[in-house]
Design a protein around this nucleic acid. Structure first.
Length: 104
DNA sequence: GGCATGACATTAG
DNA sequence: TCTAATGCCATGC
């Protein structure tokens, strides 16, 4: 009998949905918590494929260096949303990970 | 099964 | 601090 494991996508959704408001996490951390220590790029790909009706707080995911990886309007929107949640974001899209990084 | 892709991470200069 | 190069690995065709 071969039981199917939950896909990486499913696990990523689960982990991200657990991030509290006013905190951020990184692609690498999400991948790690999802059971794939070096699948940070896959996390990005999954988020890019998220349906519009998804309620996932994808905006709380930034790079390990505390920088928004998105460009254009999406990056601006992410920056705006994070600020509304109480996260300090510089105009260049930088966040102080020492303060706002969420870890379980 | 091989090859290209990607919202990354790390290191070097 | 910024850029370039390299490593990593699940997904999709």
């Amino acid at each position: 009998m071969s039981l199917q494991q939950p896909s990486l996508e499913q696990r990523v959704w689960l982990v991200i949905s657990a991030i509290p408001r006013g905190k951020v996490s990184s692609y690498g951390d999400i991948a790690l918590l999802a059971g794939h220590p070096r699948a940070a790029r896959q996390v990005g790909r999954i988020l890019n494929n998220l349906p519009d009706h998804s309620q996932l707080p994808w905006h709380r995911i930034i790079s390990q260096q505390g920088k928004i990886s998105l460009s254009g309007e999406r990056g601006v929107m992410q920056r705006d949303v994070l600020r509304k949640e109480g996260v300090e974001v510089s105009d260049a899209g930088r966040v102080d990970m020492k303060k706002y990084r969420w870890r379980p």
